[in-house]
């Protein structure tokens, strides 16, 4: 705490880290080989480092709580901070590839925890390439919400495979999301919005949320308002394009709806 006083990267008035000391490039190449440590498997992740209040004495008791929300490409962490107070009992993590940005979010969370005792204990951030290492962090069906807010558009067709929403990567997201889990995407680039929507629509393990479900979901409102990118778009009176889909059981391998109906009819008799 004493150190904080003399640390110029922390604002004296708010106690929060100042962004100007964490300037980073706007993009990072997801294809390049990574040189940061990656956990061998989800069981190798030490959650007591991320959520000390939820995992007190280095998992002696064995806290069974698992991370449920993942913000992929969390940027400066605006959404996480908003979600943290909205769902105080849910563990959530941000994943960010840019080193400096991750450092900023780390500091921001620590500062918020310091100035609001008892709060913000359920958020954390990790530096990783989520396009490569999602299965190293989460078990099958562990997550209930995934966020992809204002991802890099990668306009060139040659670079489309760098997009974080793609038909093949959706397989992995469907793997870590439990049935009923929800994937939120939003962008201010119409072309990318169409792309993400069409990827999700053509994937057999996702279905779009209905209009009334979107209305009722408090998280949907945060997509625009909570994130730094979203606020930027709002300032410039820009348009946003969102796609919110639910993870479902793939129909082909299981009973078709007709079969379910007929089996129900038998039960009724």
């Amino acid at each position: 705490m004493l150190e904080k006083e003399s640390n110029p990267t922390i604002s004296k008035s708010t106690g929060l880290p100042r962004k100007r000391f964490y300037r980073a490039r706007a993009h990072s190449n997801p294809l390049s080989d990574s040189h940061f440590p990656v956990p061998v498997s989800p069981s190798h992740v030490d959650f007591s480092l991320h959520y000390p209040q939820f995992f007190p004495s280095s998992s002696e008791v064995g806290c069974s709580k698992k991370i449920q929300f993942a913000d992929i490409g969390c940027g400066f962490g605006g959404l996480l901070i908003s979600l943290s107070t909205l769902f105080p009992e849910t563990l959530m993590i941000g994943m960010e590839l840019r080193d400096k940005v991750t450092e900023y979010v780390k500091e921001r969370i620590l500062a918020l925890r310091g100035s609001n005792p008892g709060q913000y204990q359920n958020v954390s951030v990790v530096r990783t390439n989520s396009m490569k290492y999602i299965p190293n962090y989460f078990e099958k069906g562990q997550l209930t919400k995934m966020f992809f807010l204002f991802p890099d558009p990668h306009f060139k067709e040659k670079n489309h495979r760098r997009r974080v929403i793609s038909p093949h990567l959706l397989d992995e997201y469907a793997y870590v999301l439990g049935v009923g889990g929800i994937i939120y995407t939003i962008t201010d680039v119409e072309e990318l919005g169409d792309w993400m929507k069409s990827c999700l629509e053509s994937h057999p393990m996702f279905e779009a949320l209905k209009e009334e479900e979107l209305e009722a979901d408090p998280v949907v409102k945060l997509l625009c308002s909570a994130t730094e990118e979203g606020q930027k778009v709002a300032r410039n009176v820009g348009q946003t394009f969102q796609a919110v889909f639910r993870r479902i059981m793939p129909t082909s391998r299981y009973m078709t709806t007709d079969m379910v109906c007929s089996s129900l009819a038998i039960c009724d008799d």
């Binding site: 061998v40 299965p135 099958k140 093949h168 397989d171 469907a174 393990m205 793939p250 082909s252 391998r253």
Partner: peptide, 23 residues
């Protein structure tokens, strides 16, 4: 990666059964 080989493979294999992680 262990993926369920679908009935219609030309549409892609989307359902991942498991990841074997440890190496």
């Amino acid at each position: 990666r262990v993926t369920i080989f679908p009935k219609r493979p030309l549409d892609g294999a989307h359902e991942i059964q498991s990841f074997c992680l440890g190496h």
